[in-house]
């Protein structure tokens, strides 16, 4: 198999994850990935082999998302500050285990969907896809400083929407039982 197709194929699971996190609809996300792959193949000659192919594909996918998908969908911009009270800064105690509280994950999940698209995109590319700031700057075609301010606002919005659970002195809640087989990250 040639190198380009090989890398393209290897990128599919990551593109699917990113697209799903962005649009939250499995079939829309897969359409987005398919469009991205088709465009990537069509523009193949334009890829100079500089930088990672994956990052180039994220850029194509992001552009398709902005051009075709974002307009069709209402994306209400909430200010989480208005929705949730500022929480007392009680640090969640159970950070030693990597198993996160499900209710935290649920709140986080909801908070992500409420982020404005530009912030969501930067947050997902950095925190989920593990891209560098300069890669994200190239993908989103905004300066590094803008990448950082979007990232910062996104994280603050998530923090405000994920209220840490109050510390419990009494043992009412069982410690998390680890699943028998852990997913390999």
């Amino acid at each position: 198999m040639d190198e380009f197709l090989d890398q393209l194929t290897k990128s599919i699971p990551f593109l699917r994850r990113y697209a799903y996190a962005l649009v939250r609809d499995s079939s829309k996300a897969d359409d987005l990935v398919q469009d991205c792959l088709e465009r990537g193949l069509a523009k193949r000659s334009q890829w100079k082999g500089e930088g990672s192919l994956k990052s180039w594909l994220y850029r194509i996918l992001s552009n398709i998302h902005i051009n075709h998908y974002r307009q069709s969908k209402t994306n209400p911009i909430h200010s989480p500050a208005e929705l949730t009270e500022r929480t007392s800064m009680g640090l969640d105690t159970d950070m030693t285990s990597h198993q996160l509280d499900h209710l935290y994950l649920r709140d986080l999940d909801k908070a992500i969907t409420r982020l404005p698209d530009d912030q969501k995109q930067v947050l997902l590319l950095v925190a989920l896809e593990g891209l560098s700031y300069s890669e994200v700057s190239a993908i989103t075609q905004v300066p590094l400083g803008t990448v950082m301010s979007r990232l910062s606002r996104a994280r603050e919005a998530l923090r405000k929407s994920t209220t840490p659970s109050p510390p419990t002195k009494e043992q009412h809640i069982r410690p998390q039982i680890k699943p028998n087989i852990r997913r390999v990250k």
Binding site: P13, F14, R16, R17, Y20, A21, D92, M95, H98, L100, Y104, L105, L108, D109, I112, L123, L124, A127, L128, R155, L158, R159, T162, R183, K185
Partner: peptide, 17 residues
Amino acid sequence: EWQKQNQGLNDLFASKI
């Protein structure tokens, strides 16, 4: 808190991979 968010994001969408 931010590290926890990163971990949470990865947990939420890990199944897609």
